[in-house]
Design a protein around this nucleic acid. Structure first.
Lengths: 341, 341
DNA sequence: CCGGTTGGTTAATGCGCATTAGTAATGCGC
DNA sequence: GCGCATTACTAATGCGCATTAACCAACCGG
């Protein structure tokens, strides 16, 4: 231990774990220097496990992902989140521990104690849908700082950050309303995930704010968009006065794909005859022109927000606003409505 | 502690940390069951920090990158390596610690002790060119297990893994020779990085093996390929009997770009009039058709190899072969040479 | 010259576990 | 019935640190 090179042991601890703020502890400048020098020359570093055991903290934030953190399929990865996570963690002086949760062949994956390794860090961020509830609940119940990336309200007391789909969807409708559209239809899939219901709520809010009657016809709920959303149906709606369509974003992008196909087949031009909006980002294979009007989920900001929240929890502070605003994207698929015939 | 619910304490430890293999310790079946039941009903989980403290190894592998690990610019990131690193680490039961070395605003970034945090893990992987030599040397000298991703021979005793450019480049030439080409020219930039010289060596080896005279004209070294590699020059070479060109891969892809442009301008068709090879992967913006003949650096395998090597060092074993073979890519830019006129 | 005070340092304690030496209980042979 | 081996468990120790009470020196006012 560095104590030999210097003078004592507890002193080393006092020097190395000196809190930057507040009272600068009772250590003479000379001693401090001696200790630091010795530590450097010996390459001494306090053992994080010991630090943690001794009821302190070790400046480590865990990241536990239930799909491989670095999947081979980059498309559906958490990479964009991690960009923000890493930046924010670095800015706050934390290092990251990647718990390789259930990677292919993952080690600690199986057992019920897979999650317990996480306690090695000061707190932990969870990514992915398939987090075992029981385990997570225990962590929360034990007062271990935990933040879930993505909305997660069913679990009492679990902190989370998510994107504000309601307001973002509302902005899309606002935009269409400002352009002059009075008949707008939402195409969504038949799914009750919060991400879907949030978007619908924002959509309806937007209609209401614009003084447009929602009515049951304003939302098209399709179990199989590709089959149900035919060119004929879209054509009929357009003929009936609908001038704008909005589709929700999902993993598959089915609603958006079907909507686009139907509009094209119906012989309608996009910004000209009807305006289209996408409540999210386009799937990778449709990312090229034309850029859809809609919004982007600020994944890196979400990651950063999650770290901020986690850091606050670790520090014993209270949680703040968990919703992060999305970024409106003007795109090229929305314009003034065609004059009625 | 679960001891109360059961009978003792050390017994709990014996039960819970029972090694599956070997001698099943001296615990009666009944006691074992009692302990397990109690543990389950109390939701007891051994504190990993304490375990590590007592066991003296923490199953953590460090990853220290001198550019942000998750850069905003995904193109030039270490992401592909990390895919392999994570998989291999997971497979071996290690967790990863990301030392946010010099991320923008990084915390421990500045000080000379930035690297010493690394000792927290059982060993550490280093990515990036700008690793401070002195610090690294200290780690190595102290016997701390260190592996550098990318060739690094100047530092005595530093373990590293790298791609085998020599053999990969040679294979490219072999392929051309088999197709019947007898006059092949290498276009490279004016840089003495090992990645460049390795490729040239492999190229020359390939020529020699095919019984083709290397001669000084076989290698075109350009400080500024875009300017020096004109259509006229390429045309002249082709007229002189050169039937195949090979370009080295660099960050910018300048040599490959210039070669392609020159061939096109010279009015030469690619697999028809001349064959082209790229010693590496095409830059992202040229990744579409036509796929160049050449080789791919198996980044994820490199990452995995690095972890294997590091794990071996941690276990006190000796290092193995540091070179990882590249994958030959037939592509669409090479064919039999045009018959001489 | 003494009690009081402050600044600087250390000895001692405990975090929760793995490990090892040691104890109690039982079985076995002679 | 006594030694001796086995089996089943426990007491004790230490991992490396943070923390805290305690200690020592010097200094100060009275």
């Amino acid at each position: 231990m560095a104590g030999l090179a210097g003078v004592s042991q507890a002193t080393v601890s006092l020097v190395l774990s000196a809190r930057g703020d507040g009272r600068a502890a009772a250590i003479s400048e000379e001693t401090r220097r001696r200790v630091l020098d010795a530590a450097r020359s010996l390459g001494y570093v306090p053992d994080p496990a010991a630090r943690r055991l001794a009821a302190a903290s070790n400046n480590l934030l865990g990241v536990f992902s239930f799909t491989a953190t670095f999947p081979t399929d980059v498309q559906h990865s958490y990479y964009p989140f991690l960009v923000g996570v890493e930046q924010e963690a670095a800015a706050r002086g934390y290092d990251l521990v990647l718990f390789t949760g259930s990677s292919p062949g993952g080690a600690g994956a199986a057992g019920p104690d897979a999650l317990s390794r996480v306690r090695l860090a000061d707190g932990c961020l969870f990514l992915g849908r398939h987090v075992p509830r029981a385990e997570l609940k225990r962590l929360v119940a034990d007062g271990f700082p935990v933040v879930h990336l993505g909305r997660r309200e069913e679990l009492e007391g679990l902190a989370w950050v998510g994107a504000d789909y309601v307001n973002a969807s509302r902005e899309v409708v606002d935009h269409l309303a400002e352009l002059g559209h009075r008949r707008i239809v939402l195409v969504r899939e038949d799914d009750d995930a919060p991400a879907s219901t949030d978007r619908q709520r924002g959509f309806l809010d937007g209609l209401a704010a614009a003084g447009i009657a929602g009515g049951p016809g304003a939302v098209l709920r399709c179990a199989d968009p590709a089959r149900e959303l035919t060119a004929r149906r879209v054509g009929a709606l357009a003929a009936d006065g609908v001038t704008a369509f909005v589709a929700e974003e999902t993993d598959t992008g089915a609603a958006w794909r079907a909507l686009n196909a139907a509009v094209r087949e119906a012989g309608l031009s996009c910004p000209g005859d009807v305006s289209l909006g996408l409540l999210g980002s386009p799937p990778a294979d449709l990312a090229a022109r034309p850029v859809p009007m809609g919004f982007d989920i600020p994944r890196h900001r979400l990651g950063a927000a999650a770290v901020r929240l986690l850091a606050a929890l670790v520090a014993g502070e209270e949680a703040h606003e968990p919703l992060v605003a999305c970024e409106f994207r003007a795109g090229e698929t929305a314009g003034p409505p065609a004059p009625p015939r």
